[in-house]
């Protein structure tokens, strides 16, 4: 008997709306755009710094505009979300064995948070906050 398999179409543009897991995945991916935008602003700051004191002072003043503050708050929230979602899957990407057992995932995730805290602390101390 001849076969006549039926293929169900899948939307190329709205597939991620079908499942909560896909939406969470999209949230993780989309939040990196704000990290990219923040990196752009940061790079611009360095560029202004290279141009001299006046350019840099003007740049710093511009950062105090309400829009700029808003942008930084949103970028901070998005980057925290983005980073933590990645931290939480590190045990899957990097499982570790010690002797005959796997190191518990919570330890691997915890180590990432600890490294993050230490790095943040070092930076805060370095900039004299």
């Amino acid at each position: 008997m001849s076969r006549k398999p039926y293929i169900r179409p899948m939307s190329k543009t709205s597939w991620y709306l079908r499942d909560g897991r896909y939406k969470r995945y999209m949230a993780r991916e989309v939040t990196c755009l704000l990290i990219g935008a923040y990196t752009g602003v940061f790079a611009m700051g360095i560029w202004r710094l290279a141009e001299g004191r006046e350019a840099f002072t003007a740049f710093m003043a511009a950062l105090h505009a309400p829009g700029a503050i808003m942008f930084h708050l949103v970028a901070l929230a998005f980057s925290i979300y983005h980073s933590t979602t990645w931290f939480n899957v590190t045990p899957q990407a990097m499982p570790l064995m010690k002797g005959e057992d796997f190191v518990p995932g919570t330890l691997i995730v915890g180590a990432h948070y600890a490294a993050w805290a230490v790095a943040s602390l070092v930076i805060l101390i370095a900039v004299g906050a």
Binding site: D19, R21, Y22, Y25, E29
Partner: peptide, 9 residues
């Protein structure tokens, strides 16, 4: 693979 992770769930 873009690590959606649904397979494992």
């Amino acid at each position: 693979c873009s690590f959606v992770g649904a397979c494992s769930e």
